[in-house]
């Protein structure tokens, strides 16, 4: 079966996020009111074949941990859905 894993990688809480902070300052300057905070991150979409959903989830978690995120400063949120 083919699945799509959506892996969102973002900086861990407490790790400085200069990109998020810059956007956070820019938004009010553009007239957007009520911006409480901005954190930056990136998203990867991985298509993968696996026997079942659980296996696909395990593979996605492993590849996120091994390559896509640097666990020293980042965490990942993974969503796997059948294609």
């Amino acid at each position: 079966m083919r699945f799509i894993a959506r892996v969102e990688v973002r900086l861990r809480e407490g790790i400085a996020d200069p990109e998020g902070a810059t956007i956070e300052r820019a938004l009010p300057a553009l007239g957007f009111d009520g911006i409480a905070s901005v954190r930056s991150g990136r998203c990867f979409q991985v298509e993968l074949d696996a026997a079942d959903l659980a296996t696909a989830q395990n593979h996605a978690a492993a590849l996120a941990d091994r390559l896509l995120a640097n666990p020293v400063i980042e965490e990942s949120i993974i969503e796997v859905t059948p294609l």
Binding site: I15, A16, P18, E19, T22, N70, V72, I73
Partner: peptide, 17 residues
């Protein structure tokens, strides 16, 4: 070396970008 875990920690984008 940091990514390879031969040294601890990580190098992030510069403050000020």
């Amino acid at each position: 070396l940091c990514e390879a875990h031969l040294l601890p920690g990580a190098l992030q984008k510069n403050r000020g970008l």
